[in-house]
């Protein structure tokens, strides 16, 4: 029997008003010590999935069904107050907007310290010391100076590192990171990824990493889920997915990377003609069919989830063995 996953998301749905369903039945799991990468074009529902998991959806967004379990607890049953005790302590999140995600009115130090003061019985001085230590660990020189500074005095890269350090204040078990390294240059990015990997080894940290960057995926992912139009269209262990991409969309993504088979660092998803459709509740069939080179009548009907190998699923009517040399 496999141990219970750290995070289990099943059939998650999120609606914005009555017309738009941004997340349509997403299921994924994150195990202890595992990095699960969620990839897809912007607007495919990756960030909304992450926010819904943390219970941080903005007003107007409604999680309409789905199961959320974290470390054996059902998150959907928790009150906002109970949930807030988990957030920042056992599950933390890093956002993709480093310029606006820190409060302009308070110092870096006070914003970092308050997380720990909220969740642990520590003095401000102890919390500050930990904050300084973490700033140092994320590669910020002169942490003592930075602690006393305000966000506007820091560059975007520094602020993103502060966000990362802040998320690690209470040694969380689960870290949800939404494009955490987008604002950083390549050396810093590598440093941050090494740092997260270090924490992962030390603490058994489970990471749900949302990214555009296939280079990052190739380096750190244990498992990859590809999202399209609010659905997970393919999910597999990282090596499986790169070796044997099955969904036409996944193949399109990988084919759009300059050197086939080899993932260049910093390469982006994209360059599949067309745009992600906006999909409302009640939409049937495959969301990708308008952009897919293999679409047929069957794509407008219900699409079954198929198995392409052990622990490798995809959502498409094509057989797993459809000609591999063809991209979408």
């Amino acid at each position: 029997m496999t141990p219970e996953p750290l995070l289990e998301v099943a059939d998650l749905r999120v609606r914005f008003g009555a017309r738009v369903e941004a997340v349509r039945g997403v299921s994924l799991t994150v195990n202890k010590g595992e990095t699960h990468c969620l990839v897809g074009e912007s607007g495919c529902g990756k960030s909304v999935t992450a926010l819904a998991t943390m219970g941080l959806l903005a007003r107007g967004a409604v999680r309409s069904s789905g199961r959320l379990r974290f470390a054996g607890q059902d998150l959907t049953n928790l009150s906002e107050r109970e949930l807030s005790k988990l957030r920042g302590d056992r599950m933390a999140m890093i956002f993709q907007e480093p310029m606006t995600s820190l409060n302009p009115a308070f110092t870096i130090g006070s914003q970092m310290a308050e997380v720990m003061q909220r969740h642990r019985k520590v003095t401000r001085a102890e919390a500050m010391e930990r904050a300084g230590f973490l700033l140092f660990k994320v590669g910020i020189t002169n942490p003592a100076l930075r602690l006393g500074q305000f966000p506007h005095q820091l560059s975007g890269g520094l602020r993103q590192r502060v966000m990362i350090a802040m998320a690690l204040m209470c040694e969380p078990e689960l870290l949800i990171a939404d494009e955490p390294t987008t604002a950083l240059d390549v050396t810093v990015q590598a440093q941050i990824l090494r740092l997260l990997a270090g924490f992962q080894r030390e603490l058994g940290l489970g990471i749900l990493l949302i990214t555009h960057d296939l280079g990052v995926v190739a380096r750190v992912a244990h498992r990859v889920s590809v999202m399209y139009a609010g659905e997970v269209v393919e999910s597999a262990p990282a090596s499986q997915l790169f070796a044997n991409p099955t969904h036409p969309y996944t193949r399109g993504l990988l084919a759009s990377v300059p050197v086939p088979g080899k993932i260049a660092r910093g390469s982006r998803l994209g360059s599949i003609p067309g745009t992600v459709p906006r999909i409302g509740p009640g939409f049937a069939g495959c969301g990708f069919r308008d952009r897919c080179g293999h679409a047929s009548e069957a794509c407008a009907g219900p699409i079954a989830v198929q198995q392409a190998g052990p622990d490798h699923i995809y959502r498409c009517q094509l057989q797993a063995s459809w000609p591999q040399d063809q991209a979408a």
Partner: peptide, 26 residues
């Protein structure tokens, strides 16, 4: 509705602290 309030919520701060400290100050 700002991003830093979302951060404050992600940090698990109490509603009172989010509203009276983080939002009101700005």
């Amino acid at each position: 509705s700002s991003d830093y309030i979302r951060t404050a919520r992600a940090k698990g701060l109490t509603r009172a602290r989010i509203v009276l400290h983080h939002a009101l100050r700005n």
